[in-house]
Amino acid sequence: MIETVLGLDKKDSANLVDNLNGLLSNFQIYYQNLRGLHWNIKGKNFFDLHNKFEELYTGAQVEIDDIAERILTLQGKPLHTFTDYINNSSVPVGKDISNDEKAVELVVNSLSELLKIERVILNLSDEANDEGTNAMMSDLISEQEKTIWMLNSWLGK
C-alpha cells in the first residue's frame, strides 16, 4: 500500500477526493438555489423564509469551504468552475421559485440528495480509516437530518 503524508492509502484518498468534489459541486448548486430563494421569496411567509434561507446559505458557504479544504488536505484539487459544478451535480436546480411551499420543498429535496452523497462518502471514509472525512460527514448528516425534520414540520408533513 502506498500511503499519503496523512498515512492513508493513496488510492482510497483519490477516490475520496473524487467523491468530495461531487459533494462540493452539489453544495454549490444548493448554495446558489438558497440565494435565489432568499432573493425571490414572496407572500405571507416572506420575513421568516427570507431569514431562514439566509441562515441556510450562510451555513452552506462555510460547508463549501470546509469540503474544499478537506479535498486539499487529502492532496486533491477542488473543482472551482460553474461548468464543473453543473456537470457533477444531482441536486435539483431551482429557478424563479417564489412560492413558499415550493421553495421549502426544493430545500428538503436538495438536502435529501446531499445526504445520499454524504452517506456514500461516510462509508468510503470509514473503509479508508479517514477519520477527518468521516467526522465531517457525520456532522453534516446530523445537521441536515435535523433541518429536513424542521422544514418538513413547517410543510405539515
Results as ranks from 00 to 15, higher is better:
residue 48 D to C: 07
residue 13 S to I: 03
residue 141 I to R: 02
residue 37 L to I: 08
residue 25 S to D: 06
residue 34 L to C: 08
residue 151 L to Q: 03
residue 52 K to P: 05
residue 54 E to V: 02
residue 69 E to N: 13
residue 80 H to C: 11
residue 9 D to T: 10
residue 64 I to Q: 04
residue 45 N to R: 07
residue 91 V to P: 04
residue 26 N to V: 05
residue 74 L to K: 02
residue 30 Y to F: 13
residue 40 N to H: 08
residue 21 N to W: 00
residue 36 G to C: 03
residue 140 L to V: 02
residue 8 L to I: 09
residue 22 G to H: 00
residue 17 V to L: 06
residue 127 E to R: 15
residue 1 M to L: 10
residue 77 K to E: 08
residue 120 V to I: 09
residue 138 S to I: 13
residue 125 S to T: 09
residue 104 V to S: 04
residue 15 N to S: 10
residue 22 G to K: 03
residue 11 K to F: 12
residue 10 K to C: 13
residue 103 A to C: 08
residue 131 E to V: 15
residue 40 N to L: 05
residue 123 N to R: 09
residue 99 N to S: 10
residue 55 E to Y: 12
residue 44 K to M: 15
residue 150 M to G: 08
residue 156 G to W: 06
residue 10 K to E: 12
residue 24 L to F: 04
residue 144 Q to T: 12
residue 117 I to E: 02
residue 40 N to P: 04
residue 34 L to K: 00
residue 65 D to A: 14
residue 37 L to E: 00
residue 156 G to A: 15
residue 86 I to L: 15
residue 58 T to P: 13
residue 38 H to N: 07
residue 137 M to F: 06
residue 106 L to C: 00
residue 152 N to Y: 10
residue 135 A to M: 12
residue 53 F to A: 04
residue 54 E to M: 06
residue 76 G to M: 05
residue 86 I to Y: 07
residue 136 M to Q: 02
residue 154 W to H: 14
residue 56 L to P: 01
residue 124 L to F: 12
residue 28 Q to Y: 06
residue 80 H to A: 14
residue 74 L to W: 01
residue 8 L to T: 00
residue 153 S to D: 12
residue 102 K to Q: 14
residue 94 G to T: 03
residue 22 G to F: 01
residue 62 V to H: 14
residue 127 E to I: 08
residue 81 T to H: 11
residue 4 T to Y: 02
residue 28 Q to P: 08
residue 99 N to C: 05
residue 97 I to L: 07
residue 96 D to V: 11
residue 67 I to F: 02
residue 55 E to L: 08
residue 81 T to L: 12
residue 156 G to H: 11
residue 27 F to L: 10
residue 65 D to Q: 12
residue 94 G to Q: 07
residue 59 G to C: 09
residue 72 L to W: 13
residue 141 I to T: 01
residue 38 H to G: 04
residue 87 N to K: 11
residue 73 T to G: 06
residue 143 E to M: 15
residue 14 A to F: 06
residue 19 N to P: 09
residue 89 S to M: 13
residue 54 E to P: 00
residue 37 L to Y: 00
residue 86 I to V: 15
residue 48 D to H: 11
residue 124 L to S: 10
residue 69 E to I: 09
residue 90 S to M: 08
residue 77 K to H: 08
residue 69 E to A: 15
residue 154 W to G: 10
residue 42 K to N: 07
residue 148 I to T: 08
residue 2 I to W: 09
